[in-house]
């Protein structure tokens, strides 16, 4: 029996899957302490849905990165190849603390990127993903599995020029696991961009928060699906999500769809969603202090996205993101 299609409301996943995936023989470059083990040419993870089938199909380099137990060393940086997607499996062993950075400035036709992160008990991961692909389409799947009392702070900066879909899943499997997923997305031109960000509370007393912010210009279309799922038995758990979209042009389209699936009583859960235009009161206030309209708009937009990107502390990356925002807006106005 073939694997099922994943649940991607309002995203034409089937159409993207009809494209032939780019050949991806070049593995990601890993920069890390010697204590970190890197293996290439290993077997891909077992696919469980039609998207994962597509991602393992054809020719794809697979890289496994193992961060040893109780690691406290420097950040581990994964850099995608110039012309290839790929598959990466990151294993963080018990009690390790690691900052994980993943950067994709990859070009091509139809990219496939699949990253699986397994976080063992009591480990802490600060994960930053920076997607700046310039391919025509990109299908991206990232899954984090958390064991007992593991903690994940995850920020995704979605600044690609590609159309496509990104599926993010955080699975809180062990008791007391905690994850926060922040997503900041900029969509421009004629891009169709879909995010499905899922947070699943499986273990007891698990805490999962999703915070998605998107800005759309031009004729772009951005879809934010947030799926909060509390499994039966995950007592004392908390699942919250916020999905906010800011539209800057009359032709931009935005969707924010929160979905909550709750199969347990003794839990807390909530959601907030909005699709709005630039707040005229905010613009007036900034301009009343002498700021020109374009500067005032940039500040409002930066401020809006900042809520999704607040955890990014690297000043160089932040400057790059802000520059991309400014350039995208200048191009949109031209």
């Amino acid at each position: 029996m073939p694997n099922p299609m994943p649940n991607t409301p309002k995203i034409a996943l089937r159409r993207y899957l009809a494209n032939a995936k780019d050949v991806a023989r070049t593995p990601v470059t890993v920069t890390a302490d010697p204590a970190v083990t890197v293996s290439t040419n290993v077997a891909a993870p077992q696919p469980t849905d039609a998207l994962e089938d597509w991602l393992v199909g054809g020719d794809s380099a697979v890289t496994t990165v193992t961060i040893p137990a109780h690691y406290t060393g420097q950040a581990v940086v994964l850099t995608g190849a110039a012309y290839a997607g790929g598959i990466v499996h990151v294993i963080v062993e018990a009690g390790a603390t690691v900052a994980l950075e993943e950067r994709w400035r990859t070009s091509g036709e139809h990219l496939g990127i699949w990253v699986v992160l397994d976080v063992a008990a009591d480990a802490t991961v600060n994960w930053l993903t920076y997607d700046a692909m310039t391919s025509t389409t990109a299908l991206v799947k990232r899954t984090a599995n958390l064991a007992a009392h593991a903690t994940l702070n995850w920020t995704t900066a979605g600044f690609t020029q590609a159309s496509g879909a990104t599926l993010i899943a955080a699975n809180l499997i062990g008791t007391g696991a905690k994850a926060t997923v922040n997503v900041g997305v900029l969509a421009a031109g004629k891009q169709h961009v879909g995010y499905v960000t899922a947070m699943t509370n499986d273990g007891r007393q698990t805490v999962g928060h999703i915070n998605q912010r998107g800005v759309i210009t031009g004729h772009a279309h951005l879809i934010f699906n947030g799926i909060g799922h509390i499994i039966h038995g995950a007592r004392g758990s908390d699942n919250q999500q916020e999905n906010r979209v800011l539209m800057l042009s009359p032709h931009a389209r935005g969707d924010a769809n929160p979905i909550l699936l709750i199969d347990e009583n003794d839990v807390t859960a909530g959601h907030a969603a909005s699709v709005t235009r630039v707040d005229e009161r905010q613009l007036y206030y900034l301009m009343s202090r002498g700021l020109r309209e374009d500067t005032a708009k940039r500040l409002v937009i930066r401020g809006f996205l900042e809520a999704g990107l607040a955890e990014i502390t690297d000043p160089a990356l932040k400057a790059e993101l802000f520059q991309t925002i400014d350039e995208t807006l200048v191009n949109a106005d031209a």
């Binding site: 707040d279 009161r281 905010q282 007036y284 206030y285 900034l286 301009m287 009343s288 202090r289 002498g290 700021l291 020109r292 309209e293 005032a296 500040l299 409002v300 930066r302 401020g303 809006f304 996205l305 900042e306 809520a307 607040a310």
Partner: peptide, 23 residues
Amino acid sequence: PVDARARLGLFLGMQYPAEIAGV
């Protein structure tokens, strides 16, 4: 427009100033 007036030397201390996150 309001910004040009501000640069010319006007300032309005508002009754209900706007809140702007991220800035």
